[in-house]
Amino acid sequence: MIELKHITKVFHTQKGDIEACHDVNLTIHDGEIFGVIGYSGAGKSTLVRIINQLEKQTSGEVIIDGEDISQLSTQALRQKRTKIGMIFQHFNLLWSRTVRKNIELPLEIAGMDKELRKQKAKELIELVGLQGRENAYPSELSGGQKQRVGIARALANDPTILLCDEATSALDPDTTEQILELLKKINRQLGITIVMITHQMEVVQKVCHRIAVMSEGRVVEEGHVKDIFEHPHHTITKRFVRDISNKATNNQLNDDLKAIYPDGILLRLTFDEDIARQPIVSRVIRETNLDISIVSGNLTNTVDSSFGILIINVLGGSQEQYHHIIQVFKDYHVNVEVI
């Protein structure tokens, strides 16, 4: 169990003091995946770094399994850290070491002998699905593979806690999905407590049991993911929930539309207020000689402005003509998104 009690962290900088964390109180139970979500600068990284004491809190206590780890000697703290794995947004692998040697690093640090290290690295490589890439250097790996190495390395000394600081933020959606699946598997199979720091709501939604929402150094909301999703209280939380539901409906809508209009291309056009009243569509039709059918439209007119979104299906052209029509729309200052 990780207990954070009245954690406050103040950075003294030349421009003045920055309070990165303010009286944060959290309890993270054994075996759970706990998310900390917040926008950039909310103090998430600082908080997670306080858990393994890479950063010392200004005041408050960090109690792990009943032990106040901020009171530990340097030696004891290093010992403790071997049992707290950490993965990072930019992976932080050593480019000078192969996959296997990167994974062996924490074992070398812990003083394990060579044969055991080799054996352990082999198991970890299998666990994260990197068989066949043992001797590759990080520069030869994709982002997702690098993070797999990061995860294997973090698990080398059989930690009970895994800290993830924006572990999927540098990855594309598909890879993010795979890494999240892997983390879930690790949580289930090994019973490791995972603390996930992220600014992506999809991430906490997919894997976390409970979450805390951070804003300006404070925890503004905390609870089970489902409850928070259904009844967000704080403005920041509402913003996160709204962003993700917009994204979800858009994705759903796009998929549906593509099924209904399999031919040609689908474009989402966004008109700014000062161009919305011009006959742009008819001009483009004339200029490109392509057929356009309007799928859906939404124009908001007020007395002195108008703003609109138009989804169109362009038919009967070649790939080049489609590129051309997109360019023509752009020349009219229309924002074009290919669905």
């Binding site: 393994n52 290093r78 707290i84 794995g85 990072f88 992976f91 932080n92 924490p106 640090i109 390395r153």
Partner: peptide
Amino acid sequence: GTIEASKAMGASNIQIITK
């Protein structure tokens, strides 16, 4: 970042320098 990662692994300063 790599120095940070090795600290998180429990590396001593000497180990950070040599490894």
